[in-house]
Design a protein around this nucleic acid. Structure first.
Lengths: 231, 231
DNA sequence: GGACGCATCGGACTTTCGTCCCATGGCCGG
DNA sequence: CCGGCCATGGGACGAAAGTCCGATGCGTCC
């Protein structure tokens, strides 16, 4: 399920990327990361497209600290996108939703760890060190509950399917799930409708669905709603 | 937003319906309801279709005690269905999700009250009395937090739109949101595809969407997921 | 260099979707 | 008893979706 994270960057110069839409929290993560690294570089992004761009520019990034709730991503969709498009990059999810089942799902979707937003700087530093060392990190106070939770087979299955999508296919899927027509998707991506159709067909085949409604439903199961989102 | 609940049954013989898939809890609710009624009848149902059937058979029911999580309904969809098809019947939601934002959404979708599954029998009895008296009931310990929460305009809007759907249209919408073709929906409902198309067009018009993918997305916002459903 | 995956398109085609007319019959409330 | 809403269908139609054949480049990996 969780593909091996090979160190894209073998020397002792770890590359980190901090992806969070809250500047203050970004700074706090930055401090904790500095304490965890002897040396290395730390980038920042404030939304999902920015994160993808940064990874595209630095493909040998070792670790992304990812907030689940950012512009362009709610729930697990951002994580799924990153894991699908950059399977070699480890992702540690940072979230205020520190409930065992959320952590369980996050891990099942390929995250290398989970940091609660209420964690102390020291804990965050430990978490980063652990994950950079190819370990897995779960908040100590949640460890047992998470281990006790079974993986949802639907989740593992979904993660496996989504990971087969290419980057472009993932973009098409996202637009498709907003109810856009093929023609509109084509305009957004600056390609021809025929090409969109080709992608859509490939998406259906990989996800094992037969039409766009089913595909968008599948994507929706990635939503990790606050039980009552007010946004 | 919340249409007036006129007492369909003006004499002192209140009719209740308990809808919960857990027999034990159904019995507990039954006891609490008996304590709240001097006289009256109490029916039971264990899934959403059963609830709808029971209401169809007893349209002058006064109050339904509705579990949010039942076969055929997850999240707010069951509530929306009931409110849409039987606007004259008061619904009190019974759920373990006793978080303020859940309660807020439940009320915005037309519920007359909310009972936490951890409430005492006495509290449940009070709640039933209050609602039967055309009042609104929120657990005392949540009252302030719920009142402080703003109604999500999306929710009010969605509730208003969904309430305009007819019973049959609601069924069609449900099947449509599962990714079924018009032809398949027709088979399920034992009607012609043309008729399904007529319903679908009406649904789009009432919901203000332009295709089935958008319609199914709209319906999906009714999901009140446990943050990480394991089902 | 060659195999492979990917993105990009093209044509032609069938199916499904969605809309526009229209009509019928039932049921309910004024 | 009648006007209105509803569910049910019919015919025809354009638009969109989805599939099947094909092709061209562009990278990467071995």
């Amino acid at each position: 399920m969780r593909p091996p994270r090979h160190a894209a960057n073998l020397d002792d110069m770890p590359r980190l990327l901090i992806a969070d839409d809250h500047p203050l929290f970004r700074a706090a993560l930055h401090q904790a990361a500095l304490a965890a690294l002897d040396d290395g570089s730390i980038g920042e992004a404030c939304d999902l497209p920015g994160t993808l761009d940064a990874l595209g520019a630095e493909p040998d990034t070792d670790l992304v600290l990812l907030d689940l709730h950012m512009p362009g991503s709610r729930g697990l969709s951002g994580l799924a996108t990153l894991r699908g498009q950059f399977p070699a990059v480890a992702v540690m999810v940072v979230s205020a939703h520190d409930e065992p089942r959320v952590v369980r799902r996050v891990l099942d979707h390929g995250a290398a760890g989970f940091i609660s937003k209420s964690a102390s700087p020291g804990e965050i530093t430990s978490a980063i060190r652990t994950v950079l060392d190819c370990g897995e990190w779960v908040p100590p106070h949640l460890g047992e509950s998470v281990a006790a939770l079974p993986s949802d087979p639907n989740d593992s299955d979904l993660a496996a399917r989504l990971s087969r999508l290419t980057a472009q296919q993932y973009r098409v899927l996202g637009l498709l799930a907003e109810g856009l027509l093929n023609k509109q998707i084509a305009d957004r991506l600056a390609i021809q409708e025929r090409t969109v159709k080709a992608h859509v067909t490939a998406i259906f085949e990989k996800l094992g669905v037969r039409n766009r409604t089913q595909a968008s439903m599948l994507l929706r199961t990635l939503d990790l709603a606050d039980p009552a989102r007010v946004d």
